[in-house]
């Protein structure tokens, strides 16, 4: 008979140990630093359920731990660490952002660390999926899916970013980031090439934001292709261009973003792909019905990106805010005929 006592307890696994260490550090830091300067801690949790023709499930979305502190008048810190399910019975720790920001004055600031890349509007307004209280829809737009979830764009970057804001009567904001490029991991970059990301936006009237951006990067031949899971074997130049717009007020939220991705290599030449999303929601009292359209068309000739997640479809959803700390969302994906539910809280 199998000795049940010899079965490895999940609490002895390395991932639980790492999670425990990370959460202990967060808690200890919050307690210790709170005596020296004020530390803000926020926690977010989302629980999900989904059902389609062949499958149904409950799942724990993620436990988002957010910490921030105003260290001095000009220096501040933000950290956001998420515990979320991994394979099997394991969980993984994901560092969404961890950076220090120095504000030279009311117009210029410098950010160093890991931050959300300055692309579009959605990424730097709603940040993590697991602060789901704040996200307008249940599912993240496909074009903005995280890299480790098979996403196309580098939504997070590790490096340095300069931001100039509130410029001229058009209320211009300009971001310029120098960061590790595609192919890098949490430990560092895989080559000498760095990515340059820039974004220019304006808010001429309250609630309206219009802008565009670009990202330039060069992939080393040793970079692992997402299309083949093998080394590229050649260098690839990748240029992304984007345009976006958003209008928000107490009642309406309308957003749209478009991305053009151009990868150039010796073997395939110049290959173009596109992605976009649009969102429209209307709030009356505590209820917000919304529509979200997703479009992703990665060329099958692309040597780096995989076309496996190509998508085009409309999602219909509704969000009910019990309070600003507790919301319930339901979303139906017409193309896959799948129904999703999410309960999100924050504290």
């Amino acid at each position: 008979m199998k000795n049940l006592l010899s079965r490895k307890s999940p609490y002895q696994s390395n991932s639980y140990l790492r999670i425990s260490v990370v959460l202990s550090i967060i808690l200890l830091s919050a307690i210790t630093l709170s005596h020296a300067q004020e530390v803000v801690y926020k926690g977010f949790l989302d629980i999900n359920a989904s059902v389609d023709k062949n499958h149904s499930t409950f799942n724990f979305g993620g436990f988002d731990n957010y910490l921030s502190s105003q260290i001095t008048d000009k220096l501040s810190f933000v950290g956001e660490i998420i515990v979320q399910p991994s394979q099997g019975q394991e969980f993984r720790v994901d560092v969404e952002r961890i950076h220090a920001t120095y504000e030279f004055n009311e117009k210029f600031k410098l950010t160093i660390g890991r931050f959300y890349a300055p692309i579009g509007y959605y990424t730097t307004h709603f940040y993590s999926d697991h602060a789901a209280l704040y996200t307008p829809s249940l599912t993240r737009p496909t074009i903005l899916a995280y890299e480790d979830d098979g996403g196309v764009l580098e939504t997070r970057a590790t490096g340095v970013m300069v931001t100039a804001s509130h410029l001229t009567s058009l209320n211009l904001t300009y971001d310029l980031a120098l960061s590790n490029g595609i192919g890098s991991n949490s430990a560092g970059d895989n080559d000498k090439n760095k990515a340059i990301t820039m974004r220019l936006s304006m808010s001429p009237v309250e609630g309206l934001t219009l802008g565009g951006g670009a990202r330039f990067d060069r992939l080393d031949a040793s970079t692992i292709s997402r299309a083949t899971n093998l080394e590229l074997g050649e260098s690839v130049t990748t240029n992304n261009f984007s345009g976006f717009g958003a209008f928000t007020n107490d009642k309406f939220m309308i957003m749209a973003e478009y991305y053009s991705i151009s990868n150039q290599s010796a073997s395939a030449g110049k290959v173009n792909s596109q992605g976009a999303f649009a969102y429209a929601g209307y709030t009356f009292k505590k209820l917000t019905p919304y529509l979200q359209y997703d479009y992703l068309n990665i060329s099958t000739k692309d040597v780096y990106y995989s076309s496996a997640n190509n998508d085009s479809g409309v999602d219909v959803g509704i969000k009910y805010a019990f309070t600003f700390k507790s919301v319930l969302k339901s979303e139906y994906h017409i193309d896959t005929q799948s129904l999703y539910f999410q309960y999100a809280i924050g504290f």
């Binding site: 803000v40 926020k42 921030s68 105003q70 810190f77 704040y134 600003f324 700390k325 924050g346």
Partner: peptide, 19 residues
């Protein structure tokens, strides 16, 4: 008051505003 509290909470998350 509850609208103000919701706004400030969201800003803290988005911008790292001090409380």
């Amino acid at each position: 008051p509850e609208v103000v509290e919701a706004y400030l909470s969201a800003r803290q998350y988005q911008n790292g505003d001090s409380p």
